[in-house]
């Protein structure tokens, strides 16, 4: 199975996002993943990596971001692992709430519209749009999930059913 998984360990810098995206694209192409899925997964890679670089806590033992791209029989799973500030339970609870909210819709388009409306309602100056995760579900056609391990590393994953699979 190892040849069906691409694991990358990168520095938490903005430039790493594009590197991971390009390497994932090449890997997915090698495994004959259809082009629309590759495009969707590239976007998902970028959004997950951006969040990891932006919100990761790299002052502890873990100094890097780990990315895994696994090709399964009818799906692709992207995982991005980045450390979070130990004890920041509130942030994880909000992430949990957000992901469950997105997954509450059979059609994530509804969640996307709700989020667009909220972004337009936010006061100028609020930098976070909150659109990234919703976009992963809607445009990236992926099911989001996460857990935090005992080393305070957030593992956020996106399961993408390859074109044709349910």
């Amino acid at each position: 199975m190892t040849n069906r998984t691409l694991s990358l360990d990168v520095d938490p810098v903005w430039e790493s996002i594009d590197r991971v995206r390009r390497e994932n694209e090449v890997f997915l192409r090698t495994h004959q993943i259809p082009q629309p899925s590759i495009e969707a997964l590239s976007m998902v890679t970028c959004e997950l990596m951006e969040n990891a670089v932006k919100y990761g806590f790299f002052e502890g033992d873990v100094k890097t971001i780990q990315s895994r791209c696994s090709v399964e029989s009818d799906s692709v799973v992207l995982e991005v692992r980045s450390p979070v500030k130990p004890g920041d339970d509130a942030a994880m609870a909000r992430l949990d709430h957000m992901i469950q909210w997105i997954r509450g819709y059979q059609d994530p388009f509804q969640a996307y519209l709700m989020r667009l409306r909220e972004v337009s309602s936010q006061a100028m100056g609020t930098s976070e749009s909150g659109l990234g995760l919703v976009r992963i579900a809607y445009e990236g056609q992926s099911v989001l999930d996460f857990f935090v391990d005992s080393g305070s590393v957030l593992n956020i994953s996106a399961l993408h059913a390859v074109e044709g699979a349910r």
Partner: peptide, 30 residues
């Protein structure tokens, strides 16, 4: 999803002879 971050999960949740979960894994990715 967050209970796993406990460093000493046994101290926090105890040891058990029978563990079960229904209606949860249907929402968890691999």
């Amino acid at each position: 999803r967050t209970m796993l971050m406990s460093k000493d999960i046994v101290a926090q949740f105890g040891k058990h002879d029978f563990i079960y979960s229904m209606g949860l894994f249907d929402y968890l990715t691999a």
